[in-house]
Every structure is written in structure tokens, then in C-alpha cells.
Design a protein around this nucleic acid. Structure first.
Lengths: 228, 228
DNA sequence: GCGGCGATTCAACAAACGTTGAATTTCTTC
DNA sequence: GAAGAAATTCAACGTTTGTTGAATCGCCGC
């Protein structure tokens, strides 16, 4: 007798003898292409070709192109939010009555993104690049980011407020903006830092990126939000 | 008798009785639309309509769509690079034999972007958003950023290396990566921080963004690149 | 005022786009 | 194994796309 968790995994893996295979393959290919070329840079025919499927099948499963785009964006959001929230709560439990340090909070914000990569599923890498594309877009950013990620971000900002007593509201948010920017460019995986550094740094190495980002951002928060 | 600098301004303003007006209007509209919707999200007909011009005129002046995209990207690059390099050299001259501090170098890297906005030309705002789009794109970033901006960036990194003796190469580049990310998200002007902060922060206020980014980034550099 | 030339528009092309209704295959259920 | 439902393909639609060649406009020198 399988546990219900394992059962649902089993269902996802085998599906109903093929049916969900093509359906999910469409999402996988759309995820990769949207992340690389953006919404308008990808045609439904490219996605269908990549998934070895007729172009009408995407419409059958997901409706219009915009609905497919949203489906890709929403597929992994809940899982990601749960992992990050769990990491925040864990460091809050483990810290004393003073609450977690800035470093611990930033770490809880970033490390789950790295774990997502380590599942071996390349889809996660593409998904993170898609988030970077959307978050940095003046068109899509305001339309899509808030609904799925604002609640989580505000929880982390609450924790940071506690860890930085006396900080001004605007200072905290501008610091979060800097963190979000550094993270976004990392997720985009443009490979630019590889070339600039002559090979010293690798965009694909999320662990190295976060190893440097955590002390960098924490020091920035403390400098800007230090008590007046 | 006008100075040659003013003369060239005058020429730009009056042009040859109209001829350069439509030609430049196409660039202006393309700049704004490309920044907002990306390369594939804009059609030549939208650009032509915005410039109140026939669709064939863009082709006549700039060739293919990709050539127009490049023309927009290149138009203001040299001017921007000169302003930033001048700011770097000035703070190098003003500093003692020890060279400028990290804060001064970051300031020279960022403040010229703010001055560009203060000329009153809204085109600069759109251009900076276009840089953000390209820099964050896994497709365009590697293809377009290096040629115009690598030389300048490496000059600033040289200055930072001097200001941070004993720092590891990879640490410096990862820190620059964080700076570049924070800056990129700022230039994108998505308005997301406005909503998240409930109005405490405004994306359009570049000065406030840099006022917070300079100490934030400088502290990050010092923390990560401190002597071992 | 006429010829020439750059700037601009007109008209049209073939290709590719998102979307859809109907036909066909594949699976599930009895 | 027949019936019904779901999944998938087929074929086509009306638009829109980037691009181009030819025609027209507007100005300047002669």
C-alpha cells in the first residue's frame, strides 16, 4: 500500500497511459521557449513542434496562447512558495527569541531556488529564467508578479523588519528592491558574468551566486537600515 | 557667432527643414515600444503608426527590423559611456594617491544615468529600460551587451580592484554581478516596488534608487571582498 | 522653371500567425 | 467487443507580419 504522497507522484509519472504525457510536454517546451525568447518571441507552432504535437493540441488543453503562458507561470509557483516559506519558518523556529538574523532570512529566501535546480529537472532552471523575464518586464511584471508572489515577499519583509529594528520603511523596501534585482539577473542566466570575468564566474552555478549574494545583500541591508 | 557645440545642437533641432525629423521620430517611437514590449512584441506597423509615417519608411532609413533595433540600441550608447567614463576619471583625479573609494566609484557608475534622465528628454528613460530588457534577456544579452559596454565595465572593475586590495577576482565579479542586477531592475521601471511598498518607494525616482543603491552596494563589496 | 535627388507613400507580395470546427485516433467503461 | 468519451490530428480560415518595387512628393541647384 502506497502513501497518498507517493501515489500522486506515481500518477504523475505514469499518467493515464500517455494522456498527460503530451499535455505536460507542451508545458515543458513552452516553459523553455518563453524563458528564452519571451511571450511574443515564441509561436504556438514552435511549441507544438518542440513537443512533437499538432498545433491545435495546445489550444485544446490550455485555450488561448495567453492562457498557456499563465499556465506555465502558475505550474510551479505554489511549490516554490511553499519551499521558501518552509525555509523561513524553519530558521525562525531555530533562532532564539530575537528572531533570525538578516543572513538567515536572506538564505531562506534564496536557497530553496537552488534546491529546485538540484532535483535534476531542467524545467526548474527554465522556470526561474521565466520568472526573471516576467519580473524585469515593464509590461508583464505589474500584471503577473503580484498575484503569485506578493504575499510571500511581504512575509520575508516582515521578518527583515524584525531583524532590523528602527529601520525606515522606504529603506527596507529599497534594499529588497536591490536584492530582487540581483536575484533576477541571476535567474535570467544570461552568461554575461562568465564572459566578463573571463571564466572566473559561471552563471549556471547558482550555489556560487548565492554564496556571494547572501553576505553581499545582508551587508547592504545593515548599512542602509542601520539605526539612525 | 555660435559655439560649435551649440551649432550642432541647433542643427539637430532644426534639421534640414524636416528631413531628419521623421527619421529620428521613428527611432524615438521604436525606442519606447521596444523597451516596453521587447523586440518581438513590437511590429514595424506599430512603430510607423506611432511616428505617423508609412511602414516602408523605417525600412528605407534603417533597413531590416533587426537593423532598426540595433540602431536604437547604439544611438545613445557612446554618449552614455562618455558620461560615465568622465565621472570615473573625475573622481580619480579628485581623490588622493590612494585612489577613489568604493562609494565614489559606484557613484560614478550610477549618477550619469540619473543625469541622462534630467535632460527632460523622455527618450533617455525609454533607452535605459531598453538596456534593462536586453541585459536581462538570455537571448539578446550575450549578443548585444558586450560590444558596447564591456570596455567601460572593465574600467570600473579595474578601479574597484584598486580600491579593494587583496580581493579575489571571482568575488569582485560576483559583486559586480549583484550591482548590475540591482541596476538593471531599476532601469526596467516595472513599478513593482511602488506597489509592494504601498507607495513608500517610486520606481520613477532614480535619485532615490541610487541614494539607496550606492551605500547598499558599497557595503556589499566591502563585506565580500574584505581582505582574508 | 526645370532636372535631379533624397524622402516619403502606395500597393502588394508570400509567409507565418493564432484560432477553430470537423474528422480521426486512442483510451475507458461496461 | 461495442459504445462513448477524451485526446489528438487534419485542414483551413481570416489577419497580420516583414519586406520590396514602383510611384509620388518636396526641395535644391542651376
Amino acid at each position: 500500500m502506497l502513501s497518498s504522497a507517493l501515489q500522486s507522484q506515481k500518477q504523475n509519472a505514469m499518467a493515464t497511459h500517455r494522456s498527460q504525457t503530451k499535455r505536460e510536454k507542451i508545458l515543458d517546451v513552452a516553459e523553455e521557449l518563453f524563458a528564452l525568447h519571451g511571450y511574443d518571441g515564441v509561436t504556438l507552432r514552435q511549441i507544438a513542434a518542440g513537443a512533437k504535437v499538432d498545433v491545435a493540441l495546445a489550444n485544446y488543453h490550455y485555450g488561448k496562447k495567453l492562457d498557456l503562458f499563465n499556465a506555465v507561470f502558475e505550474r510551479r509557483a505554489a511549490l516554490l512558495n511553499e519551499a521558501r516559506l518552509e525555509a523561513l519558518h524553519q530558521c525562525q523556529r531555530e533562532s532564539g527569541s530575537g528572531g533570525p538574523t538578516v543572513e538567515q532570512i536572506i538564505e531562506a529566501f534564496l536557497r530553496p531556488l537552488e534546491l529546485a535546480q538540484e532535483t535534476g529537472d531542467p524545467g526548474w532552471r527554465h522556470y526561474l529564467a521565466l520568472i526573471a523575464y516576467i519580473n524585469n518586464s515593464p509590461y508583464w511584471g505589474p500584471r503577473m508578479m503580484s498575484k503569485l508572489f506578493d504575499e510571500l515577499v511581504l512575509e520575508f519583509i516582515d521578518a527583515l523588519r524584525t531583524a532590523l529594528p528602527g529601520a525606515r520603511e522606504e529603506d527596507i523596501f529599497w534594499c529588497y528592491h536591490n536584492l530582487s534585482g540581483a536575484l533576477t539577473l541571476t535567474l535570467a542566466q544570461t552568461g554575461r558574468i562568465d564572459k566578463l570575468s573571463g571564466g572566473s564566474c559561471q552563471s549556471a552555478d547558482f550555489q556560487a551566486a548565492y554564496d556571494h549574494m547572501i553576505p553581499f545583500v545582508a551587508a547592504g541591508f545593515r548599512q542602509v537600515c542601520r539605526e539612525q
